[in-house]
Write a protein that binds this DNA or RNA. Structure first.
Lengths: 207, 207
DNA sequence: TTTAACTTGTGAATTCATTCACAAGCACCC
DNA sequence: GGGTGCTTGTGAATGAATTCACAAGTTAAA
């Protein structure tokens, strides 16, 4: 990939794809940047600029072919294949994620969960087996998961991340409310509910 | 508030506060912008600029007083008071949130959960009672919650948000993977795991 | 074929956010 | 008191993201 694409752009592409799939299922064949923008809470210029980083997919005067654009976005986002996921931390959040439909819909397949608590090891979270974290390295070498989801307490998160990174996994989704350090070739995305809540508190206070 | 403060700035303030509280508990009395930046994965200039929007809290040559800056940040973020929260949707994610420690730590107190499924109504999620959503309007009028957390299926999210907005609630944390429309005086923050996962897929694909 | 109505793709302009760079202030020591 | 070493606060410079604005391409209808 020649140019660097902003994170915000990738997030919007992801949103556009969702609308396109909705349109696709309703049998619509074309859509304009304007319509896509209205759904995505942005502007038509933004939609066209976002897409222009990757090529020109539309027809002037007409708009975009829904199935074609959807397919191109799936390609760009790397959703044309299955991604293998492990969950590290079998607490409540881990359990909620194990049954989350969004994973399957996008062909993210959950291989296993890991925990250090003997009471949890051997149980199942919605069909996902909880293994002893001591087997993490062995299992990763065997199953080659692409993504690790971290749902461990904040105080353990950095140590667990370091361990995950050493296994060679290059993508991590972190739910611990803490800033993590990782080498540059490992992508870490953090979902931080505490931060969102404080954003709401700020908004409620300063108006 | 005179100037408009960027979302990214507020998120960083939130991160700084977390480190400050950590320092506070370890009894440290001062901290430099440089140290704060190292922890927060940013630069010292960024830290100072962020704080400068709200005043000047440091001492040249010395840094910032840890308890004082923490207190100021709590004020700025509106964390000096209790916020009342309701959870709408008593599925797995709602259940995970009901027991999430981060709420209590920041004095976000969960009043109740709501669902339309008769099997869930009357049960408890970690001490939080699940009520019939038909009582939402009555209960909101009585209890005056500040924040609604939406953990309903994506296809119901907009309708439920509209209903929540009509009760007068001005802040919503949405977990449904969908773009929601709300009036400008209502702040909606969306936590979209699907989008984060697709960001990881993109990163893994384009390297 | 010509015209009218649309809509894309994209440089240029603008707005917004981050980084630079340094004067000014403070603490400590000689 | 003056010098040294640090660190803040902030205008100015840079960089990044968004919006503007319009030429160029497409369809459909007259």
């Amino acid at each position: 990939m020649a140019k660097h694409i902003a994170d915000s752009t990738v997030r919007r592409l992801s949103a556009y794809l969702r609308f396109l799939e909705d349109f696709e299922s309703r049998g619509l064949s074309t859509i304009s940047s304007d319509e896509l923008a209205r759904r995505g809470g942005t502007t038509s210029a933004q939609v066209r600029k976002d897409l222009s980083f990757f090529g020109s997919f539309g027809k002037r005067g007409l708009g975009y072919s829904v199935p074609e654009l959807a397919e191109r976005l799936r390609e760009i986002l790397g959703l044309g294949r299955e991604w293998k996921v492990i969950i590290v931390g079998a607490g409540k959040i881990g359990a909620a994620l194990a049954q989350y439909r969004g994973f399957r819909q996008r062909r993210f397949s959950i291989l296993a969960a890991y925990d250090s608590n003997p009471e949890k090891i051997g149980r199942r979270l919605d069909g996902v087996m909880v293994h002893d974290i001591e087997h993490l390295e062995r299992d990763v070498a065997r199953d080659e998961p692409d993504i690790a989801v971290l749902t461990v307490p904040a105080e353990d998160a950095q140590a667990v991340l370091d361990r995950v990174v050493r296994t060679g996994i290059k993508a991590v989704l972190n739910f611990a409310p803490t800033q993590l350090q990782a080498p540059p070739d490992v992508t870490v995305k953090t979902v931080n509910m505490a931060m969102e809540l404080e954003g709401l508190s700020y908004a409620l206070t300063n108006r």
